[in-house]
Amino acid sequence: MSTIVIGLSMGMLLFLLAAGLTLIFGMLRVINFAHGSLYMLGAYLAFQMVSVTGSFWAGLVAAPIIAAIIGALMERIALRPVYDRDHVYQLLLTFGFILVLDEAVRIIWGLEYKQMYPPELFAGAIEMFGSSVPSYRLFIIGFGAAVSAALFFMLDRSRYGMIIRAASGDPEMVRTLGINVSLVRTGVFSFGAGLAALGGAVAGPLFPIELGMGFNIIIDSFIVVIIGGLGNIRGAVMAALLIGMTRALGYSYAPSWVDFLTFILLIGTLILRPEGLFSRKGRTA
């Protein structure tokens, strides 16, 4: 039972990152290498808020907002001038973001591990089907499910979602309708950065907060994005849960094979269904 809970909570965390990556790729055609650093930044910001205010919830709210502002600035100042250039420039630029963000975190918070604790409400463990499950893990599952439901509702039903879907396919045509697409781009990048930081804030109490924490999860997030189908956010949910479960099962039954299993899934997908396991033809966003 606890394996399932760990797997699902891991999957939800991965989805928060993969959703941002997917939206940003769909809208900006940019693969954001710095997504892991934004996740890390979210964890540090949440840690800082918690140590100042003493409230986990303040951190959970503040971290994504601050990261979203930073994301908006990154897009406006740095990414916007290079959209028309070759993809290499954008990749190099987002790689540059990693260096800048990591260095900023090192200067502000130093090199030692930071620790965050689950909020009191979810500090204990719950007995489920004869095994003890940390209730914070259950919170992550519920919270992740709520965030993804809200995200899908926004994409499918709201006016913003409609514009994002249209502009991911044909930005020029959207502009002819009087809609400022470059503002939409900034919004999407900023929103993705916020989601990554939200992931970081949620992950804070689970893992030690350290400089390298973004690196491990970003690899898995990219795998999720590819297995789900590039630019396909529905696929990303399924893929995130698949990878989360695979890793959790791997940790309990064959710990040294975890990465191997993940990459087998990735390679299998690329060979058998390179458009993504959960891709419907022509589906974006």
Partner: peptide, 30 residues
């Protein structure tokens, strides 16, 4: 382009460029 769109010019391109992932109603509402 967006300012021209807002000033009252509408463009119906040769290849129509319907938003593929939007339904008919959304294509109009946007």
């Amino acid at each position: 382009t967006e300012m021209l769109g807002r000033s009252g010019i509408a463009y119906v391109p040769e290849d129509r460029r319907i938003f593929a992932t939007l339904n008919v109603d959304e294509n109009l509402r946007i």
